[in-house]
């Protein structure tokens, strides 16, 4: 039987303090998988550390932000015929052993996307109040319009199968924040999304991309606006899927 190819896609921006630990953890706990770091034009030594650890590193020529870095990795996976992509953060929040659980769920079920969820079970993850409110709001919107419960639509910890890799790699309008909006779009298109409860750590070093006051407000406005358009858009039929 053909061995399935799995790729960890790690977008990284100024993560010199965290990246080595993350890479070592994946090498130790998921040694069967390949790792790709997409260095989003970091100003620190992220690239040097990745290369020193003999891990594949793609350098974006200029800073394209988180989502485009993820899509670069997905495009690489599509080009190199990977069967599964695991989106993994470079800040040390995601746990490699938990990623294996996502992968097992993707392999054993009919799920196209498996989301690592912090909120299905009490995993001890303490998230800021503003983020928790946002997550709850998007959970309600998804339940209302897609008739499915997704407890953590803002989780970037996901395992994608080949069909999704194919679709994301060809999306010309891949969103700047691929969160609840993308979940809704994929559910509307007929893809199967499942959640697996996972543990996550709190970020140890560096700054979150949703920090401050203005950024979360901008994020929420853009997200709601995009969701409105996805909801008024006619459902897109998925090729080769019922």
């Amino acid at each position: 039987m053909k061995k399935e190819k799995v790729l960890f896609v790690i977008p990284a921006y100024n993560e010199e303090e965290n990246i080595e630990k993350v890479l070592n953890e994946i090498k130790k706990d998921a040694s069967f998988a390949d790792i790709l770091v997409v260095n989003d034009c970091s100003k620190d030594n992220t690239e040097e550390i990745v290369r020193k650890n003999k891990v594949k590193c793609i350098n974006n020529i200029f800073n394209m932000k988180y989502a485009m870095a993820v899509q670069t990795g997905i495009k690489y996976a599509q080009k190199n015929n990977y069967d599964y992509v695991i989106q993994f953060d470079a800040d040390g929040q995601h746990i490699a052993k938990e990623a294996i659980r996502l992968l097992e769920e993707a392999k054993s079920s009919n799920a196209d996307i498996v989301i690592g969820s912090r909120y299905i079970k009490n995993t001890g993850y303490h998230c800021p109040l503003f983020r928790r409110i946002g997550t709850k709001m998007f959970e309600i919107i998804i339940k209302l319009f897609c008739k499915q419960e997704i407890a953590d639509p803002l989780s970037g910890f996901q395992c994608l199968n080949k069909k999704v890799i194919e679709r994301y790699s060809k999306m010309g309008n891949y969103p700047e924040f691929p969160d609840a909006n993308l979940v809704i779009e994929m559910l509307k298109a007929g893809y199967v999304i499942k959640e697996v409860p996972v543990k996550m750590r709190l970020r140890e070093n560096g700054e979150s991309m949703h920090g401050g006051i203005i950024k979360p407000i901008k994020y929420m406005t853009e997200m709601i606006y995009e969701i409105i358009f996805i909801l008024i858009q006619s459902p897109i039929k998925k090729k080769g899927n019922k």
Partner: peptide, 15 residues
């Protein structure tokens, strides 16, 4: 709205 729905105008730019 129609231009955005037809994907001739990006959602973000249309705001």
């Amino acid at each position: 709205i129609t231009e955005v729905r037809k994907k001739k105008f990006s959602v973000k730019e249309s705001f």
